[in-house]
Simulated assay, not measured.
Amino acid sequence: MSISSSTSPRITTSLLAIMLALFSGCTTASLPSLPVVSGPGAKIDVTSQTHPEASRSFKFDQALYNVDDNSDVTILLIQGTAENPTAVLTARMFWTPIPAQTPIDQTATNATFHLALYNDQPDGSKACAVYAGAGFLYLYNNAGKSKLSAGIWEANLRLADATTNHKNVYDKSKLDGKIIALKNSTLLSENLATINQITAQYLGYPRFMMNPSSPFITPPSDQQLARSY
């Protein structure tokens, strides 16, 4: 059976999703939707469980990624610029889902995440907060290509570090999103170093946005999130 050129995009997308579910062998009722970001960038939804009215979508114009010698994937998303960011998200994936072998559900965890928010207060002071957590990062093409398509699914965030003037509305939040990132290890490292410096300036002490390397990923406890990141 062939699909004519007049077939609607909605039908084509639905068929693709069904085929993906059938051939992947994943034990779940629904998979993360395919990324719809048109170019390099990301759309990330943060849903607060304690302050639902504060839930919002973040759009990142800069999206970079790299694959290290252990095949771990690192993604860096920047809203604004590396020198003057308003939001930054880092993600590190420690293992890649294997079709027909990897179950996908709300408890699946293969990546850690850090979300940093920066803003200047009316009194001239600087506010910053870093949220950290773990969740599922699903790749829609093989890592190592010039462009990577990925989705974040069912990640949990907790407040890890913050200035005293930060209004904490995203503690106990869900993180979901769609990413298209360009492979550029040099620029990723340079931008990350700059962001680490800026974050330290806001907080008043060193705070690295890169996740610690570990082959075992489980949701961190509240005690661990308090200072270990």
Rank of each mutant, 00 (worst) to 15 (best):
D123P: 03
A143I: 11
E83A: 13
E190H: 15
T7N: 00
T102N: 03
T27S: 15
T194H: 12
P206Y: 04
S33I: 01
S57R: 10
P52M: 07
H114V: 09
P215S: 09
T107W: 14
L22K: 15
Y202I: 11
S173V: 06
S149V: 02
L159W: 08
K59H: 14
T86L: 12
N211T: 05
N141T: 00
Q224K: 14
A29Q: 13
G133D: 01
L64P: 04
L34S: 08
S55E: 05
D176R: 09
L117G: 06
S149Y: 04
D69V: 14
L188G: 10
S2M: 12
C26N: 14
L182Y: 04
P212S: 11
F58G: 06
S33W: 03
C26M: 12
S2F: 11
L159P: 00
G80E: 04
G41I: 05
T164V: 05
T74W: 06
D69M: 15
A116L: 05
G204C: 06
S6Y: 06
Q224R: 12
N196D: 15
S125V: 03
D123S: 05
A21D: 03
L192W: 11
T109P: 05
S4G: 07
S8A: 11
L182Q: 11
V36L: 11
F23Y: 12
P99V: 09
D68H: 04
K43F: 03
S146I: 01
D120P: 01
A29L: 14
S4D: 07
T164H: 08
S2L: 15
S185R: 10
K174M: 12
T7W: 10
W153N: 07
A116Y: 00
R207M: 15
F60C: 06
N84I: 07
L159H: 03
T47H: 13
L182G: 03
W95E: 03
R207Y: 09
A181C: 05
Q197K: 13
L15C: 03
R227T: 15
T102D: 05
H166G: 03
A63K: 02
Y229Q: 04
N119T: 07
S6R: 08
A29K: 14
I44T: 02
L175C: 13
S125G: 00
A162K: 08
P212H: 04
S8L: 08
P9G: 02
A21T: 00
L137R: 11
V36M: 08
T96Q: 06
Y170F: 15
E154R: 02
K183P: 10
K174L: 09
R92Q: 14
R227N: 15
T96L: 02
F60I: 11
N142V: 11
K59Y: 13
H114T: 15
I180P: 03
Q224M: 13
S14N: 08
D68L: 03
L20R: 14
N70G: 00
S24W: 10
L139A: 09
